[in-house]
């Protein structure tokens, strides 16, 4: 299997203030890849850098350091022309379907315009393709929606439309940033299901950015990988079932342990681990040590001094933690 997107040693620093002298390290030393036709979930809370990472993967943001490879080619060294040829293969779905769709365009045109520009489709062919795409995302009967506007759709419907629009260029990878955070509760599962179907039926690689661990599990329990972000670093990654059923990093464990469960008895009897701090870590390029050390209940001296690197604990399962990285340390 070929790698669709590979991110190697990517760091991102945002500078601001007078003379751009205040630096904030949003991502540091990220290594991540997704093979063609696979699934990947990036999990993290707000402020952990997950959206920045997704945008860097989609070439909407540029890394301060490191490389992003699309289908084996470094996009930082590509010419404009080369990039334009590949651009359609990697598509991005925005978080908020209430602001990512043009309110004054008909639903037909929202899907049709990219087809007109990118593929030069006209009249009958265009209509046929729009219909196909809308059926792919479950907006049926397609003709019923053609002359309507985005405001006629519910949040779930809008997100489906945004996905249909992303499919116009026949992408091999879709990157979706928090696709369900603005969607009604009863429709969330159906959107995740749609991404799974697109992955299964059309072999499109799907990268989802989520904060909902349950949704991440639903998306990856059959196949796919999970990467957990904390403070701009990947603290744990690996096969979805391995990471989510057997979490090893203390942060992942707290995250899973704190996720709501839909069972009143279990919810009342479980002991939720309390962290030492709930503040979002703010890191600068000079910060040292593990970003989670300030909150972790298991931290040791070393955690404040040295940044832990990702090390494998079993096949396809890596964590970055000084305490739990070797089997003996597991409490």
């Amino acid at each position: 299997m070929h790698e669709a997107i590979k991110v190697s040693n990517v760091s991102k620093v945002f500078s601001r203030g007078y003379l751009r002298k205040s630096h904030k390290l949003v991502l540091s030393g990220i290594d991540l890849k997704i093979t063609e036709g696979d699934r990947l979930v990036i999990v993290g809370e707000s402020g952990m850098g997950k959206t920045t990472l997704a945008r860097i993967m989609a070439d909407l943001e540029w890394p301060t350091e490191g490389q992003v490879l699309w289908f084996g080619q470094d996009i930082g060294r590509m010419s404009k022309k080369e990039k334009r040829l590949l651009r359609g293969s990697v598509q991005y779905v925005h978080q908020d379907p209430y602001s990512s769709l043009h309110p004054a365009k008909t639903i037909f045109n929202i899907v049709a315009d990219p087809l007109r520009y990118a593929h030069g489709l006209k009249s009958k062919d265009l209509r046929k393709r729009v219909k196909e795409l809308m059926e792919m995302v479950g907006l049926t009967p397609a003709e019923y929606f053609f002359n309507k506007y985005p405001h006629h759709l519910s949040g779930g419907g809008r997100q489906r439309l945004a996905i249909a629009r992303a499919l116009t260029t026949e992408p091999r990878v879709i990157i979706a940033d928090e696709p369900i955070s603005m969607i009604d509760m009863s429709l969330r599962a159906s959107i995740i299901k749609l991404f799974k179907d697109l992955n299964d039926q059309y072999n499109i690689a799907v990268v989802l950015v989520l904060h909902d661990i349950g949704a991440a599990k639903y998306f990856t329990y059959e196949k796919g990988e999970v990467a957990i972000l904390y403070g701009g670093k990947i603290v744990e990654k690996g096969e979805g079932t391995k990471v989510l059923d057997n979490p090893l990093h203390p942060y992942t464990r707290v995250l899973i342990n704190s996720s709501p469960v839909a069972d009143p008895e279990l919810a009342r009897n479980r002991q939720v681990e309390q962290l030492r701090s709930y503040a979002v870590p703010i890191r600068t390029p000079d910060s040292k040590g593990c970003p989670f050390a300030h909150a972790c209940n298991y931290y040791i001296e070393k955690c404040l001094e040295r940044d832990p690197q990702l090390v494998p604990v079993e096949q396809n399962h890596e964590i970055a933690c000084h305490v739990f990285c070797n089997r003996d340390g597991v409490i």
Binding site: S186, A189, S190, D212, S259, V261, A262
Partner: peptide, 21 residues
């Protein structure tokens, strides 16, 4: 209840509700 993706749910039994509110 059948459509919520809670961490303890049986993932293979999750079934979205059709339609929209």
């Amino acid at each position: 209840l059948g459509s919520i993706m809670a961490i303890n749910a049986d993932m293979s039994k999750i079934k979205p509700i059709p339609g929209a509110p």
